[in-house]
Design a protein around this nucleic acid. Structure first.
Length: 221
DNA sequence: GACCAGGCACATC
DNA sequence: GATGTGCATGGT
């Protein structure tokens, strides 16, 4: 069954890589900022941008709100797509102030499903970013699907090759115990695996999952 | 120089 | 609903 397969994969990855200590951000807002900045972007570049914000003492919703848009764009420049991302950050801040008085603490009292829907109304926050915020910043029991996760799930025949985001999320959420810590670690391990072995060109010879039966679905991208 | 990175919105068919 | 395109820096 899928649940057993998911368990087996988790054990292999955890034994191989150990705990990943995600998300590498100190505050809730830093994690949210990172989630937006890392869209299709190497995390190293995101770190530079976050460091810039820290050095400018701008890593709070209020401070970013007060920042001139061009100044914000300049600070996050190393993260790439810096003009769109500055806009996306400002969209999130605007939503936060309009609905929650700019206070992330208030989000704690909002039900997960409703919060997810609300986050998805913010221009620039799509499903993965919303779910990353929910899981890593707000400790909600939501499984994050990213490119690597989809690739690995398909390559290992956990789902049909054309499965969309919600199908993949449902696969993990309904087959695993609903546990924030587990969802956190599992997704981080899948990203780690993807970075090393599951590029568009697979590098399976050293992958911890190579021993699994039925690996490499030829229909995968 | 080519390719890739922890996506998303928008246009078009 | 599926598919294509712009957005951009920085590492390998």
């Amino acid at each position: 069954m899928i649940a057993e397969k998911l368990n087996e994969i988790y054990q292999l990855l955890y034994d191989s890589f150990g705990p990943q200590h995600w998300w590498p951000g100190k505050t809730r807002f830093e994690i949210i900022t990172g989630a937006i900045l890392t869209q299709n972007t190497n995390w190293k570049n995101v770190e530079k941008a976050i460091k810039n914000l820290q050095h400018a003492d701008c890593l709070t919703p209020q401070k970013i709100k007060n920042l001139p848009p061009e100044k914000l764009a300049e600070l996050i420049r190393p993260a790439g797509y810096y003009k769109v991302k500055a806009k996306r950050l400002r969209n999130f801040i605007q939503w936060l102030f309009e609905n929650y008085d700019g206070q992330l603490e208030i989000l704690e009292s909002v039900a997960t499903d409703r919060l997810r829907e609300e986050l998805l109304t913010v221009k620039g926050i799509g499903r993965e970013t919303a779910d990353s915020i929910l899981l890593y910043a707000l400790q909600r029991e939501v499984f994050v699907i990213d490119t690597y996760t989809a690739r690995i799930a398909i390559r290992h025949h956990l789902t049909e090759p054309r499965a969309d985001y919600e199908q993949l999320r449902d696969l993990f959420q309904s087959s695993l115990p609903s546990d924030v810590k587990l969802f956190n670690e599992y997704h981080a391990l899948l990203v780690q695996t993807g970075k090393n072995f599951c590029k568009p060109k697979p590098l399976c010879d050293k992958c911890p999952l190579k021993s699994l039966p039925h690996t490499i679905n030829p229909q995968c991208y």
